[in-house]
């Protein structure tokens, strides 16, 4: 049986269907989950997709973090289920306190959309095990409030414990402290990042690469890694 990976749709989610497609391309079976339910439908892993849940009202991800399904998501995450938060999903993970710190408006004040080079800093998480530490990848980034901040103490702890999962290369697109693009938790099952792996999973639709336009599929490894992590858990 293939790994069943749930994708939660919140009011204002945009990339839920792209995430479902990426799950399928990565070898998993996507399962649509609804924010208002208290039912994970027996999935093996969960993606919180990008978008603008609740119109970014209050703070990005803040209201979604208190939606009904999040109590089950938080519970499952604390028990080791792989959970990936992409962009708004990362903001929801931070607001849920599954990952530390906060995300604020880009330091330059503008929305940014670009193909972003990243370095994989931790290749032992449920969503990055298909990479090798130090790998450089390119996936799209698109956000207005992606500036990662935390206290110096938290940043030092994250660095010391190897919990920085991805770092921006070439350009820091949003003023994130220490160029942090994504984080993982102590168990390595929860990963959150601002860039969008689900948009780099199929030739013809990914970032431009030196070899060919729109050929980048570096994001596929996230979903393949999760499928393997799920199979390894069973």
């Amino acid at each position: 049986m293939p790994a069943r990976i749930g994708v939660v749709t919140f009011p204002g989610s945009l990339d839920d269907r792209d995430a479902q497609r990426a799950v399928r391309l990565g070898g998993g079976e996507p399962v649509a989950l609804w924010h208002g339910d208290h039912d994970l439908q027996g999935v093996d892993a969960i993606v919180l997709p990008g978008g603008f849940s609740y119109g970014d009202y209050l703070r990005c991800g803040a209201i979604a973090a208190h939606s009904p399904i999040m109590s089950e998501v938080i519970d499952a995450a604390n028990k080791g289920m792989p959970v990936l938060g992409i962009c708004n999903g990362f903001q929801i993970l931070v607001e849920s306190q599954l990952l530390p710190g906060g995300l604020i408006r880009n330091d330059h004040g503008d929305f940014v959309c670009r193909d972003q080079r990243l370095r994989v800093e931790n290749a032992s998480t449920a969503w990055t095990s298909g990479f090798t530490e130090g790998d450089e990848i390119v996936i799209p980034l698109k956000n207005g409030e992606g500036g990662y901040i935390a206290t110096e103490e938290t940043l030092d702890r994250l660095e010391g414990e190897g919990l920085v999962a991805f770092r921006y290369l070439d350009v820091n697109p949003n003023g994130s402290l220490r160029d942090i693009a994504g984080l993982t938790n102590e168990l390595g099952n929860v990963v959150g990042l601002m860039p969008h792996p689900e948009h780099a999973t199929e030739p013809g639709f990914g970032p431009d690469m030196p070899e060919a336009m729109r050929s980048g599929v570096d994001g596929l490894t996230f979903f393949q890694s999760a499928v393997e992590a799920v199979l390894a858990r069973v």
């Binding site: 209050l58 703070r59 931070v94 607001e95 906060g102």
Partner: peptide, 8 residues
């Protein structure tokens, strides 16, 4: 706990 995020 909800109306503000003490991190920011």
């Amino acid at each position: 706990e909800f109306l503000s995020n003490q991190v920011i």
